[in-house]
Design a protein around this nucleic acid. Structure first.
Length: 283
DNA sequence: AGTGTCGCCTGAATGC
DNA sequence: TGCATTCAGGCGACAC
């Protein structure tokens, strides 16, 4: 499931493959995914890729004709790169194929079709409906303890839901929310507005740290650069609490026969994993 | 405005 | 063995 670190890794790979290349043709194997494909995608030809960037979990491919190809990988999306000499046989959930002028193909594969691919005007992209409500980038300099305290002031919503709210900070998905709250020793159920500056500082530091570690892990798993995909790389083996119900948390010193180890609960319809011993309050 | 819930979709895991 | 059921989740839409 691609979260921000995976999307960042994908972007870095796409940059090498696409920038300064021309799109030769686009093939669509269906009408759309979570939202319909832009019909204009089919007519995209002979357009140069100027740059590739990321905003939240969106991949932005900026084109020479003033448009931007906006991609989102949803839950299960992958971007696969096939070189000129690689045989390409479309597989079951390949929905969109970009053929470049050098014979390289970028294939968007998404079994669950929670992703999207649309064209939008590059000018004013920040006001597009996908982007205008978005909060700060978690790895940017604007994401600080002061910002978080002010943004969450007076909110009763659980802190885990608050840091997953795109309007507050983007790109912190279910896995990394659980991991960062564990690292900061904060109870995921604590009301967001109750965060004091020192605790907010710890939380901000840990969100940045866990994302950076995951990017590093993803990057290393792609060092011989063949394909860009949505895998978690090796980071999934480093989870401290996520998907570890009943097991020891990272660095656990409890007798888990007595404590039961990592607990799982549901918040906002999503699983939260936490250690009731080390996340007993507000850090 | 803030908050909570739903539904899109398919593959993996589980149940009978 | 095989069929049916359950679960996972990003994020927009919708209901209070």
């Amino acid at each position: 499931m691609p979260e921000l670190p995976e999307v960042e890794t994908v972007c870095r790979g796409l940059k090498k493959t696409l920038v300064d290349r021309k799109v030769k043709s686009v093939t669509l194997h269906r009408d759309g995914m979570r939202v319909p494909f832009s019909p204009a995608l089919k007519k995209l030809a002979n357009v140069k890729v100027k740059s590739v960037s990321r905003r939240a979990k969106y991949v932005l491919v900026h084109l020479g004709d003033g448009q931007t190809l906006v991609l989102h990988l949803g839950m299960s999306g992958r971007l696969l790169i096939f070189g000129r000499k690689d045989a390409y046989v479309p597989s079951k959930h390949d929905h969109l194929v970009l053929l470049m002028d050098n014979g390289t193909r970028v294939v968007m594969n998404d079994p669950r079709r929670f992703g999207l691919a649309v064209l939008a005007e590059t000018d004013g992209l920040e006001n597009h409906k996908f982007f205008r409500h978005l909060g700060v980038e978690p790895l940017g300099k604007d994401f600080t303890a002061e910002y978080l305290v002010e943004k969450l002031h007076g909110k009763k919503v659980a802190v885990k839901l608050a840091i997953m709210d795109q309007r507050v900070v983007v790109g912190v998905g279910n896995i990394y929310a659980s991991e960062a709250l564990f690292a900061a020793h904060i109870d995921p159920r604590a009301p967001a507005g109750a965060l004091r500056p020192a605790t907010a500082e710890k939380l901000v530091v840990e969100i940045k740290a866990v994302l950076k570690r995951a990017i590093a892990a993803g990057g290393s798993s792609l060092r011989d650069y063949v394909q860009t995909d949505g895998e978690l790389g090796y980071f999934q083996h480093q989870f401290a609490v996520y998907d570890r119900e009943g097991k020891k948390c990272k660095g656990c010193t409890c007798d888990i026969k007595k404590t039961g180890g990592v607990k799982r609960m549901t918040q906002g319809g999503r699983s939260t994993f936490y250690c009731p011993v080390r996340q007993a309050g507000l850090g």
